[in-house]
Design a binder for these strands. Structure first.
Lengths: 124, 124
DNA sequence: AGTTGTTGTTTACCATAGTAAATCTACATT
DNA sequence: AATGTAGATTTACTATGGTAAACAACAACT
């Protein structure tokens, strides 16, 4: 069941939680508002949705709910990447990578880092 | 304006069109049904949506509409990849690539090919 | 005690994707 | 001419994400 399919804002909320481990709704709203205005009640609705799908949990503390992530950042990112690979690149990871190298201008540093990553991953 | 945001099925229809250049609704339905059952009227609705957003065009031929892609495959794939990079990896291409190398098992061949692509892209 | 502010809950709307039946339209075949 | 068939168009419904106001409960301040 848990397909871990997150929308744009839902994902941004998760990022705040991965960052802080725990945060109440107000704190999340404020963190999001640093970058982009969003109403507090919107954030609360999204938290509700996220909880409904098991992406976050909460515990009451004092009068307020403190939320925490139930999904691991890596896991969610992996799912998102997989999603793209399957839908757009026919399930072929290499297709995506080739596309990136060809179309997304990588800096010299990024290319070097990539080189290193590849070499390293060839060890095992 | 044209944000070129395609859904799952919409994308699959585009793939058929990129494949064949031109096709009528019936042909598209049949092509899709090779892999996954979908009602013809559904395909028609999706074609309508795609046309509304400028992703496909059509011209009458005989009694039927022949559809063709209005968007380039590369362009759409690029947008999709960008989308993931922005939402999930904070706009950092390297982040995605690192993630891929770390989490998506690439075959020896893929890694070699990747090596070559990188070297090549360092020329310009 | 009454007002204010915070927090959570309920309710409501809109857009988009996906699904598909129902209907219209026009030609082809009998 | 009647009927059937294929295609297009209309209509409808569900799910999800995003947006947010309205409301209720309660603590705190004056």
């Amino acid at each position: 069941m848990g397909e871990t399919q997150l929308g744009r804002m839902q994902f941004r909320i998760m990022q705040v939680l991965w960052d802080r481990q725990r945060a109440n709704a107000r704190e999340i709203t404020e963190a999001l508002n640093e970058a982009e205005p969003v109403a507090h009640s919107t954030v609360q609705t999204l938290l509700r949705q996220l909880e409904a799908k098991g992406a976050v949990g909460h515990e009451a503390e004092d009068r307020t709910f403190v939320f925490f992530p139930r999904l691991k950042e890596d896991r969610v990112k992996r799912t998102a990447a997989r999603e793209l690979i399957d839908r757009v690149f026919g399930g072929n990871v290499g297709g995506l990578v080739a596309h990136l190298v060809k179309n997304e201008r990588l800096s010299r540093d990024e290319l070097d880092a990539l080189h290193r990553l590849i070499d390293q991953s060839q060890q095992d």
